[in-house]
Design a binder for these strands. Structure first.
Lengths: 224, 224
DNA sequence: ACCTGAACACCGTTCAAGT
DNA sequence: ACCTGAACACCGTTCAAGT
C-alpha cells in the first residue's frame, strides 16, 4: 500500500511499509521482494536506502521500541517510570508477536532504546541508587518485559501445536502430570494480572536492594 | 559428520546431527539440504522421519530443554529446584545462543518441559502454594530464565553493531547520555552475579507472596 | 542519481521415479 | 520400504545496464 505511488522512496517510507507488511502477514512474509512490491518498486531499489536486510530489521526494532518509549513519562519517580514503561512495552509487544521475536533474535540498541535507558537510569541515580544497582535495575526491567511477554505469547500455541500436550492441557493426563493438571484446573489465566504482579515483585525487590545498599553505606560512612 | 556413514537414518540421528550443525554454524546454516549433507543423505530423505522443518526445530527445542531439566534435582524444597534449574538453564542457553532465539521464536512444549513443569509445581503445591500461585511461580521462573539470558546475549553485540551506540559505550556522549555514561563507567559487568541476584529477588518475592497468601487464608479461616 | 533486469547461489517442499 | 532427481516457487544480494 504505497501512500503516494511515486513518492521518491526514503528510509522512512521503507520502514513504515515494512511495519505494515509484518503486522499484516508476519515476519516470514517480510522479504525484500514483497516489501518492494508493497512500495510499487523492484526489490533491488531498496538497497539504495538500506544497507542490508539486517539494517532494515534493526530500524524496525528501534521503531517498535519508540512505540512504547517515545513519549517518556514526565515523572521523577523511578518506580512510576519503570512501571508505566513496562506496561506500555508489554502492550505494544503483545500486539506484535513478530516484534518480540525480532528483538530476541536481533537485539539492536537504537536511539529510542538509548533515550529510554538514559531516562530510567537518571531517575535511579537521582534516587540514590549506586551505578551498579542502576545497571542491574535497567537489566531487570528489560529482562522482565521480554521474558514475560514471551511467556504470554507462548500460551496460545500450547494447545495448537502440542500433540500429547493438548491432552495434558485438557486434564486427561492427571496420572502422569498431577500437579500440572491440578494447577490448570484450579487457577485462572489472567495475563494482565500476572504481569502486574510480576512488575510489583520486581519493583519491590529493587527497592529492597536500594534500602539495603543505603543502610550499608551509612554504617561504613559513620565510623570515618 | 555421520557417526556411521550408512546407519539407517532415524529421528534421533537427525536431531543430534541438527544440534551439531547449529552449534557449529548457527541457526541460519541449519537448512534441510545442509543437514542432509551432514548425514550423507539427500535433503528429501529427511522427510521420511520428520514431518516438517518446524517439526525438526520443535524436537531440537525439547532436546535443549532436556539438557537442563533432565536429571531433575532430587529435592523437596521448591526453592532449591527453582534455583538449580534456573542456573542450569541459564548456563545451557548462554552456551547456545541459537537455542535461546529458537525458544523465543517457537515456544514448543515438549515432554522435557512438561516433566520439569510438573516437578516444580509439585514442590510448590506441597509447600502450600495455592494453584494460582504455583501457576504464577512457574511463569515467573521461566520468564526470568528467558528474559535474563536474552539480556546477556544482547550485551556483546552492543559494541559490535551500534554505530553511534559504540560512541556512547566508549563514554564519548556524556553530554547527551550522562546517566548511561556514569553507569557504564562506575559499574562492573558481572553477568553471573547479576543473574544470581535476579534469581534470589524472584525467589524472595515468591516466598513473600506465599507468606501473604497463608496469612490471608488463616484470617478468613479463623472466623468460621 | 536513481532504479531495473538478469543472474547467482541459495531456500523448503512435492512428487513421480527408482532400488 | 526407503531413498532420490528433477522441479516449483521462493529467498538475499551483485552488478552491469538503462533512464
Amino acid at each position: 500500500m504505497p501512500t503516494s505511488p511515486r513518492a521518491p522512496l526514503s528510509r522512512e517510507r521503507i520502514l513504515s511499509a515494512a511495519l505494515s507488511v509484518a503486522d499484516r502477514d508476519g515476519l516470514p512474509a517480510l522479504s525484500m521482494r514483497r516489501l518492494g512490491a508493497a512500495l510499487g518498486v523492484e526489490a533491488m531499489s531498496l538497497y539504495g536506502h538500506v544497507r542490508d536486510k539486517g539494517d532494515l530489521l534493526d530500524g524496525l526494532v528501534d521503531h517498535v521500541v519508540g512505540m512504547w518509549a517515545d513519549p517518556l513519562p514526565d515523572e521523577s519517580d523511578w518506580r512510576v517510570v519503570a512501571r508505566t514503561t513496562m506496561a506500555r512495552a508489554h502492550e505494544v509487544l503483545l500486539a506484535r508477536p513478530w516484534a518480540c521475536e525480532l528483538v530476541a533474535a536481533r537485539p539492536t540498541v537504537g536511539r529510542n532504546r538509548l533515550r529510554y535507558a538514559e531516562a530510567l537510569q537518571r531517575r535511579m541515580l537521582d534516587a540514590g541508587f549506586s551505578p551498579q544497582l542502576a545497571h542491574h535495575g535497567l537489566h531487570l526491567v528489560d529482562g522482565t518485559i521480554m521474558g514475560f511477554t514471551l511467556q504470554e505469547l507462548r500460551r496460545p500455541t500450547l494447545q495448537q501445536l502440542g500433540e500429547e500436550v493438548a491432552a495434558v492441557a485438557r486434564g486427561e493426563r492427571a496420572d502422569e502430570f498431577p500437579a500440572i493438571t491440578a494447577v490448570l484446573a484450579d487457577s485462572a489465566h489472567d495475563h494482565a494480572a500476572e504481569f502486574a504482579l510480576m512488575t510489583e515483585l520486581i519493583l519491590d525487590g529493587l527497592e529492597r536492594l536500594h534500602a539495603r545498599e543505603t543502610a550499608e553505606r551509612r554504617t561504613t560512612d559513620a565510623p570515618s
